[in-house]
Design a protein around this nucleic acid. Structure first.
Length: 613
DNA sequence: ATGTATCGCGCC
DNA sequence: AAAGGGCGCGATACAT
């Protein structure tokens, strides 16, 4: 074996890792131990070196460099990861110095930023990232930069040096070894890709354009809104003419919190409800609302679809809680609650000959909190076979009116909101506003919750206190940063989300390896897989087996059961929810019909409205 | 032309 | 004293 190998690659446009083809990797730089940095275009020789290494170290190597060597040069990454022979300094940097929530910290983890922090500013010469971008611009693309260009080579050499220096300052704990295996498994989502119904996407893009044009013309004709821009009502000129329109209709224009003209769903729905008889106003609101929720998801999917007809989203764990981001395109924001946009999920398909299966964890954030809080009553409410929210309702509102055998507690929905909200530190005022109750009632309900679950209340106090040290740790050892001053809300919320994240990742780690190439998406508490039709039942059983287990925070602690439920086996992602959702169009079988009688069917509606055009 | 901030929407 | 968390993406406005 060849000691520690520090590695960095220069490639064509990084966004094209999965569809560029041979030649993607252009130049490799590596150093073995303390030896000089070697740069070469002989990538096969680099694969040899990596395979021989005791450990290969690099920044984002798991998600990028080693993935590229695996894809285009036959690297056996599986064995490397299994033997703990990969150290990704990006994963390490995030655990050693966790990010704040929000956008402020997204740029803090590129190699140069990490090195400036850890090694000191003087160690980093220039701005490699932007210089590289300039080189690419100058030569007409990342894949056109001459591989012997002195600046190109110099930045590569510096990055290898930086990785080597950096790795001497980073601390690798047990959580990180686990995390490498987690991210390697999740990277199958990027690698395999998710098949797109390109015909449907193309049709939806066209339909949306037609609809938008129609609405814009209507608003222009009736209310004098400008025609330019994609959403004229959000431009300065558009807002001005809208204000005028509202005034002419005798209505005070609705405002957002910051005083701008409100054109959001809630504001418009409220306005509509208040002035039902003002026909022109209702028409205006409806036209404006047709812009809302009208996202260009089809276009976004199309923009990210590779020549193989698939999207290859990025998977990363850069959030403050460790939650997994699936982006480019973002798969965590596809419509689900709204009938009007749930059909976005119909655009994603299983592989040919496959079906999609899904499973989601039941109340996983509550279980995460229970694991930490060790509140006997709270854990009891989470026992298998019990309906957690009904149990919570009984605890807060009393047993009366609830026949356990007959079904759910009548105030189940209220309890659900309270449980969820208090985990995130909602106060009485917020709860009152949210639930439409008096502040006094809200205070009483929150107090009842604390009284019924004293250990839960104690845990929240304790974790808020720990949050003052800025770093808190979840049940699996992930370190999470709490913003100073935000301990009250963030500390319990981070525990709920962060431990929930690692419960799901535990399930991912428990999946049998044959299912890894089947992974298509993770959405916090849900996973989706494309599996051969004849193995669907077997796969579903294996997934449920993997996702369900009791977890205890210490060997002495009370275990909390983690439970999951399977979705339907679907011929597209939407089809997976056909028995969960009440809308007929969720079923692919329904969508395959030429038409239907349901006037509210969002699938056949567009077909009807465009008929005879 | 390109990047950042803000808003408003969607999801869990 | 009071305090609802975490995100991604598109569109626009504005600065550079």
């Amino acid at each position: 074996m060849a000691g520690i190998v520090y590695l960095d690659l220069e490639t064509a446009d990084a966004d094209r890792l999965w569809d560029y083809g041979p030649g993607f990797v252009r130049l490799a730089g590596f150093a073995v131990g303390d030896a000089d940095v070697v740069t070469t275009t002989d990538i096969a020789s680099v694969v040899e070196v990596v395979q021989q290494a005791d450990i290969v170290v690099g920044h984002n190597v798991l998600g990028f460099d080693l993935a590229a060597l695996e894809r285009y040069h036959g690297l056996d990454l599986t064995s490397l990861v299994a033997a703990n022979r990969v150290v990704d300094t990006l994963l390490v940097a995030r655990q050693n110095d966790p990010p704040l929530s929000g956008k402020a910290d997204v740029q803090r983890y590129n190699l140069e930023a990490v090195c400036r922090r850890v090694l000191g500013v003087g160690k980093v010469a220039g701005e490699g990232g932007s210089a590289l971008k300039a080189l690419a611009r100058e030569h007409g693309g990342y894949d056109q930069i001459p591989v012997n260009h002195p600046d190109y080579v110099r930045y590569l050499v510096q990055d290898v040096h930086l990785v080597r220096e950096l790795s001497r300052h980073l601390v690798i704990d047990d959580y990180l070894w686990r995390e490498h295996k987690v991210m390697w498994r999740l990277n199958h989502i990027s690698k395999q890709g998710f098949r797109v119904d390109v015909d449907l996407v193309t049709r939806l893009v066209a339909e949306r354009e037609a609809r938008l044009r129609e609405q814009k013309e209507f608003l222009h004709r009736e209310f004098g809104l400008p025609l330019d821009g994609k959403k004229p009502h959000t431009t300065t000129a558009g807002k001005l003419s809208l204000e005028k329109a509202f005034s002419q209709l005798g209505i005070e224009p609705p405002r957002t919190e910051k005083g701008a003209l409100a054109t959001g769903k809630e504001a418009l729905e409220k306005l509509e409800a208040q002035h039902r008889d003002n026909e022109a106003l209702v028409a205006l609101c409806q036209a404006l609302r047709s812009f809302n929720g009208d996202r260009s998801m089809a276009q976004t999917l199309l923009d990210h679809t590779s020549i193989d007809g698939r999207i290859h989203p990025s998977v990363s764990a850069g959030q403050a809680t460790g939650r997994i981001s699936v982006t480019k395109p973002g798969l965590t924001v596809l419509g689900k609650r709204d009938r009007s946009n749930v059909c976005e999920r119909a655009m994603l398909l299983p592989d040919v000959g496959d079906v999609l299966i899904g499973a989601d964890l039941a109340q996983v954030d509550a279980r995460a909190i229970a694991i930490h809080a060790q509140d006997a009553g709270y854990i009891a409410a989470l026992e298998p076979g019990k309906d957690m929210h009904s149990e919570m309702a009984a605890a807060v509102f009393g047993e009366e009116g609830w026949n356990r055998q007959a079904g759910q507690h009548p105030r189940r929905a209220d309890a659900k909101a309270i449980t969820h909200a208090t985990t995130y530190g909602m106060g009485a005022a917020g709860l009152a506003l949210n639930a439409g109750i008096s502040e006094q009632d809200a205070r009483r309900q929150l107090a009842a919750l604390d009284a019924q679950f004293p250990a839960l209340a104690g845990f929240k106090r304790q974790i808020r206190e720990e949050g003052k040290k800025q770093i808190i740790c979840n049940a699996f050892g992930r370190r999470m940063r709490v913003a100073p001053g935000k301990e009250y809300t963030q500390a319990p919320a981070h525990i709920g989300q962060g431990t929930a994240r690692d419960l799901m990742m535990q399930g991912i780690l428990r999946l049998p390896t044959w299912l890894l190439p089947c992974l298509r998406a993770v959405v916090h508490d849900e996973i989706v897989l494309s599996v051969p039709e004849h193995r669907a039942d077997e796969a579903e059983k294996a997934v449920l087996e993997a996702l369900q287990f009791p977890h205890q925070i210490t060997p002495e602690a009370k275990p909390v059961p983690v439970l999951a439920q399977a979705s339907d086996q679907g011929r597209d992602w939407l089809d997976c929810y056909r028995s969960e959702k009440p809308w007929p169009e969720v079923s692919r079988a329904h969508r395959e019909q030429a038409g239907c009688d349901d006037p509210d069917c969002t699938w056949h509606q567009t077909a009807r409205s465009t008929e005879g055009r």
